[in-house]
Nucleic acid binder design. Sequence first.
DNA 1: CCGCAAAATCGTAGCGCTACGATTCCGGGA
DNA 2: TCCCGGAATCGTAGCGCTACGATTTTGCGG
Lengths: 347, 347
Amino acid sequence: MASPTDKSAPRLRRKTDSVTMQDVARLAGCATSTVSLFLRKPDLVKGKTGAKITAAIERLGYVPNMMAGGLAAAAATRVVSLIVPSLRNAFFAATADALQAALAQAGVQLLLGHNEYDPAREEALVRASLAWSPAALVLTGLEHSRGTRQMALSRGTPVIEMWELGANPLDMLVGFDHRAVGAAAARHLRAAGCKNVAFIGARLQEDRRAAQRGSGVIAALQQEGASARQAIAPQPASVALGEALLGELLERDPKIDGVVCSNDWIALGVLFECQKRGIAVPERLKIIGFGDLPFAAATYPALSTIRPPGERIGQEVARLALAALNGETVAQKTVDVGFELVRRGTS
Amino acid sequence: MASPTDKSAPRLRRKTDSVTMQDVARLAGCATSTVSLFLRKPDLVKGKTGAKITAAIERLGYVPNMMAGGLAAAAATRVVSLIVPSLRNAFFAATADALQAALAQAGVQLLLGHNEYDPAREEALVRASLAWSPAALVLTGLEHSRGTRQMALSRGTPVIEMWELGANPLDMLVGFDHRAVGAAAARHLRAAGCKNVAFIGARLQEDRRAAQRGSGVIAALQQEGASARQAIAPQPASVALGEALLGELLERDPKIDGVVCSNDWIALGVLFECQKRGIAVPERLKIIGFGDLPFAAATYPALSTIRPPGERIGQEVARLALAALNGETVAQKTVDVGFELVRRGTS
DNA sequence: CCGCAAAATCGTAGCGCTACGATTCCGGGA
DNA sequence: TCCCGGAATCGTAGCGCTACGATTTTGCGG
């Protein structure tokens, strides 16, 4: 049988007008494969040819098409996908910022999504991300839906979880121990002389890391044989919530003289509430927050807090992602970036 | 001449093990093109076939390959590229957050980059972004390098600039008038009784929008025949900088009784400095900031400020981007999202 | 000068999907 | 029962690039 469709009328496909590698090759007087080679491994192409190619690229304003490249190479997709709970959260913004900066240097793009602490939405984002077969998938925390875990694992995509440390990571992990943060804060206040330390937290159901800090506080206090109070609320952390929760706490127990806050926003609210009530800080009440947000050093008195290395996390994640992209295997799959207690005026 | 390479040893290409549309088609007992059609326009496929395809997709855990799709379609790339100055800046974080949320609903991914207010880096990011032939390119502000303008324009990619209003946009524009913001703030303080209003600004060379707000303040004051003072510094806005600049200002002119700040961080510093110096706010000195950042409503007294609709910008940008993706042309290429003066305790 | 291995370069088969013309199916007059 | 037109499907040619074996140049010792 003759070829089924041999009518020589070539199909009319909206031939894109964009400059392709073929155009570059033609102008440079070489094969497309040489251009491709030059773009990926310049050393393997002779200087003169390389110069002609460079000139052609320059003259034509050629921009390689990543779609085509990604399709053909399948392995070396130069994208990394990042999923965080929220960008409005300064912690994740800092990490995303540092990650993007580090990736950009290596010519890798960042695909970004946020899930508002909703596992279902995370799953949807993971599914969508994987459609781009990223070189690495970066997730926040260790808690994911079954579907997420399965998708992330079944494909060969390297997965990096971050901002938390714990058992059973999917693959690579960059973070620090939030229980240790809580414990350190509690012990710090005790060492500073507090007899009645309390923990104030927000949104603990959804923000697992804040919950871990809280349980670290409680555990440390109990270990020292001290009483452990807490005031928690389901809504997102905010200054106003800090104000309200301190009020509630003092109502229940006026002897409170030390407060560990689940983050600096809460701590700022506590500090403001103290100002309003005329409670002397740190003499009468000591405060420690978490985050070392931009205002922490400037409040009056300056806020003691614990500084999480948000940027460092971004950098470490970038390092691991880039290693994965280059096919290298890292020896240390878990990176503990630690944290730092910053003692200032409120403690 | 016989075909040049007819040795029947088929080239060994790392055939990816992933599930392809072909697998789905085979399992569903139809052609790949039908699967593709179903995925894009379900109504054109009969219910029974659709059900079989859905089942097959489900059973195989099929995830479409966007690279391939993007290559084949060229038009309907489901990515939007966003470039902001910095993610650590809450304004842009809010916009990115809202934009991503709106795009995700339409199954569109966000490619993100930040350039730290550096036009050269912006150009590099634009070049890298275009390699993904995004459905739209979103840039911050109206000031771009020549290369950026050229690249953005020469390709057919729709461009959306944001967070600013002004002449000669590249294409679409979503923002508000920063000079008007400055003028509104200045007039507000004047109306509240201030005789000597000053502007405190940071990083005005790089942050064009802050500079516009400043010139709006000055212009409004001069228009009213009032004196116009200002204190500016090249470093990024921070609480500490606000404290320092208020000190400097009072040194030069103790009669200052109203301060317009280039943003809320500066304003917070001014407020703290007043507390330290025992200056009564708002009786002796009135303050107004910009941004309505999370702490603004909670300071004591609560900070008067101007609220920029950061999320609204993200939503409008998403609307325009989605329209562009669907090939629709929007009548109104420029969207003024306005702003809102929030009067609180400091004015 | 020749021969040969190493260095450069080339040619082409896909990567997985979509567009689009071609083909088949189906239901309702005539 | 046959015919016909619209509704469903199908088949296949690329999209632009990279991998990789094949081919051509080059450099140099003999």
